[in-house]
Amino acid sequence: MINVVSLTKDYKTGKEVVPVLKGVDLSIKAGEFVCIMGPSGSGKTTLLHLLGGLDTPTSGSIQINGKELTSQSEKNRTLLRRKEMGFVFQNYQLLPTLTVYENIIFPLHADGKKASPGDVDELLNAVELKGYENRFPHELSGGQQQRVAIARSLIHQPSILLADEPTGNLDRKRSGDILDLLAKFHYEQKQTIVMVTHDMFAAGYADRIILFKDGVIEAEVKREDEDYARFLARFMA
């Protein structure tokens, strides 16, 4: 469960203060698959970074599973992030000197935990990379690297998966595979997924779509809403 109240974020460039988020209220239920869309610069990636504790807000509150994120110390925020969250980025962000296997278990390693070979095996099978354990990221295609990143994001069984343009660097076929993979994990394990995207082909995978504009939520629509498709199509066209 994610609860965001009156969230703002300003960035300072020299003397100028640029407000990127101008007061966002948002509640995401456990197990929901939410998609955040909007033009570049509308604040969607900033929101994702704040939700993940990768950055701190200027004001406002973020509760993750009942815990206030903004009042935690840096150390506790990191612990909360490691326990509850997984991240997937547009440019994969794998560690280039580590093998596929080592990349996948990295979050556990960082937490001083041991990986159970069974868990890693299961994930490798799920992302269809069995046999690639000892390869390095540069030996893989973009789609394969993103599948490693997804496995890495889920190795510690987080309750929340934050994905920033996970299909942004991939062609239509590969991005379809990545979305199918996220859908499969979501269906089987019921993580909360928050995905930032500008890809309309990704939007159809979400239960709810939140539309950002100029640092605020402009509109939102749920899949079961009667005029879901018409509403979104109008917005995107």
Binding site: Y187, M200, A203, G204, R223, A229, R230, A233
Partner: peptide
């Protein structure tokens, strides 16, 4: 707009067929 609607319906269907 109509094409976008079709894309949304079909991507959702794709998800269901994949599952």
């Amino acid at each position: 707009e109509t094409i976008l609607k079709d894309i949304l319906h079909l991507t959702h269907l794709r998800k269901q067929m994949s599952l």
